[in-house]
Amino acid sequence: MNFTFLTPNEMIIRRGAAAQIGEVCGKYATNVCIFRYGKHYEQSGTADKIEAALTRAGVGFSVFGRISSEPSPALVNEAAAFMRQNKCDGALAIGGGSVIDAAKAACALSPNGEDIMDYVEGFSPKPFAARPLPLVALPTTAGTGSECTKNSVITEKGKFKNSVRDDHMLPVAAVIDAELTIHVPAGVTATSGADCLCQLVECYVSRLSNPMCDALSLHFAAIGYTALKQAFSDGHNMDARERMAICASVSGIGISNAGLGAAHGLASGLGALTPLSHGFICGVVQPYIIRFNCKRGVTKYADITRAITRKSYGSDEAAAYALAEITDELNAYIGLPANFKGTGLKKEDIPAIAKASMGSSIKKNPVDMSVEECEELLDDMI
Rank of each mutant, 00 (worst) to 15 (best):
residue 369 M to N: 11
residue 359 G to R: 01
residue 3 F to V: 09
residue 30 T to W: 03
residue 330 L to Y: 00
residue 299 T to H: 11
residue 375 E to S: 09
residue 31 N to M: 04
residue 103 A to M: 09
residue 305 T to V: 02
residue 189 T to Y: 00
residue 119 Y to N: 02
residue 41 Y to H: 11
residue 82 F to I: 14
residue 25 C to Q: 02
residue 303 D to M: 08
residue 69 S to Y: 03
residue 51 E to H: 11
residue 25 C to Y: 04
residue 218 L to P: 01
residue 321 Y to H: 08
residue 169 M to D: 06
residue 320 A to L: 09
residue 73 P to M: 01
residue 79 A to H: 03
residue 101 D to Y: 01
residue 13 I to Q: 01
residue 143 G to N: 05
residue 96 G to Q: 06
residue 236 H to P: 14
residue 200 L to S: 07
residue 247 C to L: 09
residue 39 K to M: 06
residue 11 M to L: 10
residue 292 F to E: 01
residue 40 H to W: 11
residue 192 S to C: 13
residue 251 S to Q: 08
residue 374 C to M: 14
residue 161 K to T: 12
residue 301 Y to R: 09
residue 365 N to Y: 04
residue 359 G to M: 01
residue 354 A to Q: 04
residue 279 G to R: 00
residue 172 V to H: 04
residue 241 R to K: 13
residue 203 C to Y: 03
residue 223 I to Q: 14
residue 178 A to V: 11
residue 80 A to I: 09
residue 287 P to A: 05
residue 238 M to D: 10
residue 184 V to C: 06
residue 44 S to D: 11
residue 130 A to F: 02
residue 71 P to G: 01
residue 155 T to L: 06
residue 294 C to D: 05
residue 36 R to D: 04
residue 332 A to C: 02
residue 184 V to I: 10
residue 217 S to A: 11
residue 248 A to V: 06
residue 18 A to K: 13
residue 47 A to I: 11
residue 109 L to F: 12
residue 41 Y to R: 07
residue 310 R to N: 13
residue 58 G to I: 03
residue 135 L to A: 03
residue 365 N to I: 09
residue 214 D to R: 00
residue 145 G to E: 01
residue 221 A to K: 09
residue 43 Q to K: 14
residue 257 N to A: 05
residue 249 S to Y: 09
residue 191 T to S: 12
residue 229 K to N: 13
residue 3 F to I: 10
residue 12 I to L: 12
residue 348 E to R: 07
residue 358 M to E: 08
residue 356 A to T: 11
residue 53 A to T: 12
residue 176 I to K: 06
residue 311 K to T: 15
residue 22 G to Q: 08
